[in-house]
Design a protein around this nucleic acid. Structure first.
Lengths: 354, 354
DNA sequence: CTGTTAGCGCTTTCAC
DNA sequence: GTGAAAGCGCTAACAG
């Protein structure tokens, strides 16, 4: 691999001159410039990015910590949003997956910092606000996604999950449902779950419906988890005419389980998911869901990271909000509750019909 | 950020000694070692990875080019396989997505090389064998996945896609189907599509069924593409009692379109997908599909890359094969063809029933 | 076992 | 406008 020295020799100039034409950092006599360009071409010269990074103290890499890339299109869509912003700036993106695991998230952040990323975009579920705050003091620009870190509100790009979940439940209530189950994540310690739960409870309370822990079922937040969570609900014999799910994957698994138990959706049970995963348009029935604007979040986070890095907050900062609001997308998995009909599991008849 | 010099000063030793304890590259007197360790702790010292990379000529990064992370779990699962192998080696993975686009794939590979990745794992659809061969001569260890690059057979980790597709079609034939449509990708120039088409034709030929271009429909290989491809088939009024799809996403879209046209699966039309995308277990009916062992491919490719890098081929090379064979997974979307029944689109009645 | 020294490839003063 | 020279932080001979 050719070095700057080889080029300077071939072009009969000093290495400083070569450096100048590489970086356009100063004027160079036209003929010398041509000679250098020619030599670079000839030797197929590529500046060594490590040497550059060493002296510039800048790596041109943006580090991203995501939950996992495998758990569905969620983070992948976020990455797309991020790349849309970062790549045009001629910077690279380094991704690592924390798998929602405390130690692994720590390892990844430290690895990313060790790699001297210019800025970090962090989706952390498992680390505490305090840990995040400590990292953010390292000096490297850091933005947090899908999470509002207290005291770092201006570095947090987040979605009002609670509002989205409340909307989902309100939609069901508006359709006459009162026994609304919640298929939730078993990561009850994480904000993602807490916020949804808060939205669920809020909407119930607004409607004067008492919260019933018996129709809440937790499992790992994927299709299989949704399947099992509904099964567990069915075994409990707790009547419900509708459910909301932590995410679309769980909703799809749940619908699949209902089908296996000969329960129709939305005929007997209405369903609302969360995320607006593209697949929700291709199952039967099409899944009514809450759109989580994840790609926009990715874009916004990347833009913020760049603005922090270049210290050009004025330019970027208020073009988009830091807070996004999810919106309900009505498709075909919600039907009007049939008022007086006994629930499919008649043991516990609805008693709170107002 | 503290440097090795700061540490050496604090510990009252030379920087070489510090370097020695960092790298365990030579014995150091226990008490000095302790002093160094203590100083490193105290200063929160982290070796500068660029300086290390500059002198070691090794970045500890493995570059990966994938199609896209967003198009479903396929590449994400491959990444998981790769990370399972790379991370324990204390190396990092840098991923870039080529989006199956020729120029973008080139850019990514060059960016990865520029970054001086220690080795590259390349999933390229759009580049020619010759281009790939040229890149592979750059000196940096390179392995190709999901593709057999001629003359680089020992660097290609691939899946016998043709065999898998032939099995899918044979399965349908064994169930009495003769009018088997093929929902294919519109990337007809790429090996992925050519290979599947070859398998489709091969199985038809074995069974003495004439290839009928009228029941082949191409579209973008995602759910929406599958949806449209089937619609187009329906409009053509070409009778078929079953279909195989390029991948599960297309199959799911296709099934969704059939449902929208009141055609039942597998009642009226049988379906076979490709990939064994986890979601295929949660749709109705569960999708019979061909398992593409993508995670194993990722693992194998990463292992090969490492073995190339460390020049320890003997150790790794034959632990696993470079060629994988997909296997048919029977679920619930295939039914026996009803022999004499006119097809749902009666225009073209089956005439080749043997 | 340990310190001194010479780079790795590049950018950036600082003189000329 | 241009070159010489001093590092960036680290590793690896090379002497002791």
């Amino acid at each position: 691999m050719a070095t700057i020295k080889d080029v300077s020799r071939l072009a009969n100039v000093s290495i400083s001159t070569v450096s100048r034409v590489i970086n356009k950092s100063a004027n160079v006599a036209p003929e010398k410039e041509q000679a250098v360009l020619k030599a670079m071409k000839e030797l197929n010269f590529q500046p060594n990015s490590f040497a550059q990074a060493l002296v510039n103290k800048r790596s041109n890499c943006i580090g991203v910590l995501v939950g996992d890339l495998c758990g569905g299109p969620f983070f992948a869509q976020m990455m797309r949003g991020i790349e849309d912003v970062i790549l045009p700036e001629k910077k690279y993106v380094i991704v690592m997956s924390g798998n929602h695991n405390h130690d692994r998230e720590k390892d990844c952040i430290e690895a990313l910092m060790l790699r001297r990323c210019d800025a970090l975009i962090i989706h952390s579920k498992a680390l505490s606000d305090d840990e995040l705050i400590e990292y953010s003091q390292s000096g490297i620009p850091m933005v947090f996604v899908n999470r509002l870190v207290s005291s770092l509100e201006d570095r947090s790009v987040w979605v009002d999950i609670t509002a989205g979940m409340a909307d989902a439940v309100r939609h069901l209530i508006a359709n006459g449902h009162r026994k609304i189950a919640y298929i939730c994540s078993d990561d009850a310690a994480f904000a993602d779950e807490k916020d949804r739960m808060a939205g669920y409870k809020m909407a119930l309370e607004e409607a004067g419906i008492e919260f019933d822990p018996n129709i809440v079922s937790a499992a790992f937040p994927d299709e299989n988890g949704g399947y099992r969570a509904i099964e567990s609900l069915l075994m409990r014999d707790a009547g419900f005419t509708a459910f909301v799910a932590y995410n679309d994957a769980m909703a799809i698994g749940a619908i699949s389980a209902l089908a296996d138990n000969n329960i129709t959706v939305p005929g007997q049970v209405s369903a609302v998911g969360y995320d607006d995963n593209p697949i929700s348009n291709y199952i039967k029935p099409k899944l009514t869901t809450v759109r989580y604007p994840i790609e926009e979040v990715g874009k916004r986070a990347a833009t913020l990271a760049l603005s922090l890095l270049y210290d050009r907050s004025e330019e970027f900062n208020w073009r988009w909000p830091l807070k996004f609001t999810p919106v309900l997308i009505e498709k075909a998995s919600v039907a009007q509750a049939r008022p007086e009909e006994p629930e499919k599991k008649p043991k516990k008849a609805a008693k709170k019909q107002s």
